[in-house]
Nucleic acid binder design. Structure first.
Lengths: 350, 350
DNA sequence: GCCTATAAATGGAACGTTCCAATAAATCAA
DNA sequence: TTGATTTATTGGAACGTTCCATTTATAGGC
């Protein structure tokens, strides 16, 4: 089985009785070749079981067609959806993106980026891991390889970012809680080493200000962005003297954790405590109770990121505009039934 | 910003005042180089912002260190877990695997495999898409590139497969349902173009035989392996004259769908209808009611697959043993409370 | 029939590495 | 000292493509 030395373009040239240049032309679909010749060559390719060596080709072309997608947590369906959106676009462009997972680990991320660069990628779409150091992308920028950040961005970076309107999403969600009559509010999960965290927390705080919720009535608990983290947040908050009656969660995973912890205490999300998530993953709609969450059009953002990347490659630039995606609140059951009381007012004040 | 022509090994040789061969040796961590020289070279590499060109290297070495992981559905957390297990092993071996998604589409899979081959992968771990044609891997085998199948396999293929003991898992689950007193059983979801389907269905049928459930009392409904598919299955089954009281589902996604559909009809999984899933994804434990499911140690199988691959590459063979992973039933709430009654009447007759 | 224009096919020099064989420098045995 | 041995370093020929500049074949115009 162990295949005799791999066939090259020369082998198939010999087989087809033409020159290597001709074979190369056929491979590239050049119109300069007589159709019959092309057919002959293609047959030889088939017979010999030739496989194109892109590495060798790129050596001359300096124009690789591989794009790397670096994802910080593949097990979060949210990022998987993002990846799927991007793939749709790349597939249409005849490009196969390679996905690599960093498992939220900056060291691993460094390895992954290095490996991708060595592979000669044409561009990189990255959702950076927590704790990514500011200089992590300096070398890549210096090499002139286009990078776009998806969903997350870095503090002082010039790299274009595609992300939802986190501030507004959090603002809307918080306003919704206030409209439901809640006065003691919490923000659960996430950590301040993430730019997104500040965006979302900022929206939460602004809504509090706007509607006159005093700082004393706000509870902010950082935590892992997972179910486990969410459970811990709720415990912490309820243990505090002034326990909140509603929470905006950093993401849906945290929200699920909070609902789990509520249930463990014999409380019910919606009636005893209001919960809002962020991202609106597919599961949110099917959960019991169904989770109210900020919908961000994940796949759409993925597509957008891919388009921006394609454009950057094409125009050989390393710069592009940021893109802030629209958000909207998917209202479901986890904040309780609409209280007709409290009246008409409030719809979406301010 | 647009980087002057990329630096090569020669540039850094000049910069460091040594020959290209010396640089190459340093790059490979050869012990033949005087430490001070190596340091000098490394400094030059840093200064110039050199990035190694693996394509060029592989041209000479014919020994790439990239491994491709081809996954049929990244949005299913089950496969994401599998990928994560593999990554753990590869990371330890200093290899960065590239993941590609086929979205359960054989045509896309073809493209992805081609692209990976052209990239010169050292090996391929594949969870084949539904409807993969028998010959899809012929060329790859002919090229002598090791392939292992994970979770799924192809009918007549000689390619080693790493998979859970599907037959036994289904057998155990079905037995569990029967022990709970159910006599009219269903098998929901999946389709017969998948080998796994036959394995699981086979376990179901064997358990039925063993415990004397007549063929007339078995309902088999094929369907998409998703929530939606599960919902459809339940509707179909309940509409049939002889409606079942319990179901083994092809996978957890189907099971979640079935529970959703039950709830829509005002029925409750566990009390009104028993449901068992397959795969035991993380969510199963947290669902309400918690889903009884066949646990297959997904990440463990991923690790196993990675190890087998590593061994194949190392011993330059294209053959390996299949590996059947142990399974066990994680009993939770979706089949109802333990009926102490048990013996006597087979409670659920009707 | 000859010249020119067009179409089709080709040889050779890159591209950035590795690795073998060879050289140069340093050390040692006598 | 001299030759043998070990330690560091180096030039050059590959590896499998692309693409430019040519060559060769075919057709057209007169």
């Amino acid at each position: 089985m162990a295949s005799r030395a791999k066939a090259t373009i020369l082998d198939i040239a010999r087989e087809a009785g033409v020159s290597k240049s001709t074979v190369s032309l056929v491979l590239q679909g050049s119109g300069l070749i007589r159709p019959e010749t092309a057919t002959k060559v293609r047959k030889a390719i088939e017979d010999v079981g030739y496989v194109y060596n892109r590495g060798a080709a790129n050596l001359r072309k300096a124009h690789s067609n591989v794009i790397g997608m670096v994802i910080n947590d593949l097990t979060n369906p949210f990022f998987a959806e993002l990846a799927v959106g991007m793939e749709r676009v790349f597939q249409a462009a005849g490009i196969v993106p390679f996905i690599a997972n960093t498992a939220e680990n900056p060291v691993r991320q460094e390895e992954v980026l290095k490996s991708l660069m060595e592979q000669g990628v044409a561009g990189l779409i990255v959702s950076p891991a927590r704790g990514t150091t500011p200089g992590a992308f300096r070398r890549i920028e210096a090499a002139g390889v286009p990078v776009v950040f998806a969903m997350r961005r870095l503090p002082e970076s010039r790299i274009p970012a595609i992300a939802p309107d986190n501030h507004r999403g959090a603002f809307l969600a918080t306003q919704h809680l206030i409209a439901k009559g809640h006065r003691r509010l919490a923000f659960f999960g996430g950590s301040s080493d993430l730019v997104v965290y500040h965006d979302r927390l900022g929206g939460f705080l602004e809504a509090c200000e706007t509607h006159g919720i005093p700082a004393a009535d706000r509870t902010i608990v950082e935590g892992e962005t997972s179910r486990k983290g969410g459970m811990a947040c709720l415990e912490t908050a309820l243990a505090s003297p002034l326990s909140p009656t509603a929470a905006l969660c950093f993401n849906d995973a945290v929200a699920f954790g909070v609902m789990l912890a509520l249930r463990k205490r014999g409380l019910e999300a919606g009636t005893d405590f209001a919960v809002v998530g962020f991202d609106d993953v597919a599961e949110a709609e099917h959960y019991i109770p169904a989770l109210t969450s900020v919908a961000v059009d994940t796949a759409g953002l993925g597509e957008r990121a891919a388009h921006v990347m394609l454009k950057m490659i094409q125009s050989r630039t390393t710069r592009a505009e940021d893109h802030i995606g629209a958000v909207n609140l998917a209202v479901r059951e986890s904040c309780g039934p609409d209280r007709n009381a409290r009246g008409a007012g409030m719809g979406d004040a301010a």
